[in-house]
């Protein structure tokens, strides 16, 4: 689903990612592990172009999204991202956090369709070659109602429906992260990118977040997770990438990586963290 080809990223003189080529297939759950500074997060952030790659291609659904001419916003709708520090919108209630993107993007598309229809109507008057209008089978109110309903369903799923109208400042870290996850889900993404989703949580809240991620994994969601939770990586991932100094040093099943790592750097890292 995502093809990464010769991805390089450098900040000035510093090469953070050195020529990475890999493929993420539908349904895979990929855990990226490695020492800090190895480029894990940068790699993940390049996948949805939060960091623009210096060179190389990222083919998502047949489009090279690393190309600056591509409208990245359209492709990001299908790639959810969950951050280490949750990044819930502080000025919005929980339900508005979840609804914001679906409503805005729905309304934007509706506006664009209407605008284009206006143009088509105008042009059809003068042109012999009549073009059909876009069918418009929704309305502002309906987009909002549907987004709200979807958001409530998602909140019920994580058992936080009663917090719908509270602000993020009233929530615990674990609750915030679970809401951040369903906020990403509200766009019906094809892939979820997790950037150390449990690193900023109190130990007792890690479980609830990992449980939710596990549920999503079991439902077949494609996901890429940068994590320090080795047990979780081993249990949930279908593939583990070990990164070191901007390269993918080892790319294998969790069993093989955790029981018989090949590369000396992997061995050294795992002996420290396990």
């Amino acid at each position: 689903m995502i093809d990464v080809i010769n991805l390089k990223k450098s900040y000035g003189q510093l090469d953070v990612l050195k020529d990475i080529t890999t493929e993420i297939k539908q349904g895979e759950k990929i855990a990226i592990i490695g020492p800090s500074g190895s480029g894990k997060s940068t790699f993940l952030r390049c996948l949805n172009c939060m960091e623009d790659p210096t060179s190389g291609s990222i083919i998502f659904d047949g489009h090279d999204i690393a190309d600056m001419r591509v409208n990245i916003n359209i492709h990001r709708r299908r790639m959810g991202m969950v951050f280490q520090h949750f990044n819930l919108f502080n000025n919005k209630t929980v339900i508005d956090n979840i609804m914001l993107a679906p409503v805005n993007i729905g309304l934007h598309d509706l506006r664009m369709k209407k605008l284009h229809n206006m143009w088509l109507r105008f042009r059809n008057v003068f042109s012999a070659n009549k073009k059909p209008l876009h069918p418009i089978n929704t309305s502002k109110a309906r987009i909002k109602a549907e987004a709200k309903e979807h958001a409530m369903r998602l909140l019920q799923r994580i058992g936080l429906a009663d917090k719908a109208h509270g602000y993020p400042s009233t929530l615990s870290g674990g609750q915030k992260q679970r809401i951040a996850i369903v906020r990403a889900l509200a766009m019906n993404p094809k892939v979820l990118l997790f950037d150390e989703p449990t690193s900023a949580l109190d130990p007792e809240m890690v479980g609830e977040v990992l449980d939710l991620i596990k549920q999503l994994a079991d439902e077949g969601m494609t996901m890429v997770i940068v994590t320090h939770e080795m047990g979780f990586a081993r249990e949930v991932a279908t593939r583990v990438l070990f990164m070191n100094e901007g390269n993918i040093v080892e790319d294998d099943t969790p069993d093989r990586i955790f029981t018989s790592p090949q590369h000396p750097r992997t061995k050294e890292f795992l002996s420290k963290v396990l």
Partner: peptide, 18 residues
């Protein structure tokens, strides 16, 4: 304002302006 707020919006597919 925390840069994470902008990142979260952009990651959802919202434009810079919105």
């Amino acid at each position: 304002v925390d840069p994470g707020q902008m990142e979260a919006g952009r990651a959802l597919g919202l434009s810079y302006r919105v």
